[in-house]
Nucleic acid binder design. Structure first.
Length: 162
DNA sequence: TGGCTGATGCCCT
DNA sequence: GGGCATCAGCCAA
């Protein structure tokens, strides 16, 4: 059991400006097809030849859009010492998430299950996304404020919410 | 503390 | 063949 504390959104367009950092910007390919499918499914891709990254498809069927899971706070079921899940490549390695086993997986049921059964209140920091070279200004990274489990300190605080 | 670099596989042109 | 939604280790200060 783990809590999501940091995500980034990859969208079709932001206020009418195309999101060139999104993999779906290149259109439907064998790699990106699941992003155009129904929401609640896993988009898993390989980055830099060695790290798998987990996304959750987050737009209606037929439209592209997904959320990259960048950091988790371990809650239960992890050994001692707890693994650090503060990075998209690290958390998939710790959880055993891979393209071969999880590409397109239904996250509304099954072993990788998304739930709101552990609610809590928190404030959100909104910042630019990390590690990209296109559409770098879009404020689409969302972190739990003051969480020690995020991948990086918040570089710029753009806005807050709850 | 912060910046650079190598490792490494695959997708798309 | 170029570039990539990363990370750990190294180095200088």
């Amino acid at each position: 059991v783990a809590r999501i504390v940091e995500v980034e959104a990859y969208v079709d367009s932001y206020h009418g400006v195309p999101d060139l950092a999104a993999h779906s910007a290149k259109g439907v390919t064998p790699r990106t097809q699941v992003i155009f499918g129904p929401p609640g499914h896993a988009y898993v891709y390989l980055i830099y030849g060695m790290y798998e990254c987990l996304n959750i498809v987050a737009e209606p069927d037929g439209r592209p859009g997904c959320v990259l899971i960048r950091a988790l706070e371990p809650l239960a079921g992890f050994g001692n010492p707890q693994p650090r899940l503060n990075g998209p490549g690290k958390l998939t390695r710790s959880l055993g998430i891979s393209r071969s086993e999880h590409y397109g997986a239904d996250l509304t049921r099954g072993p990788l299950f998304l739930t709101d059964a552990f609610p809590c209140q928190f404030e959100v920091d909104i910042t630019p996304r990390i590690g990209i070279n296109h559409s770098i200004d879009f404020p689409l990274r969302f972190c739990v404020r003051n969480s020690s489990y995020v991948s990086k300190r918040v570089p710029v605080q753009i806005e807050t919410s709850s």
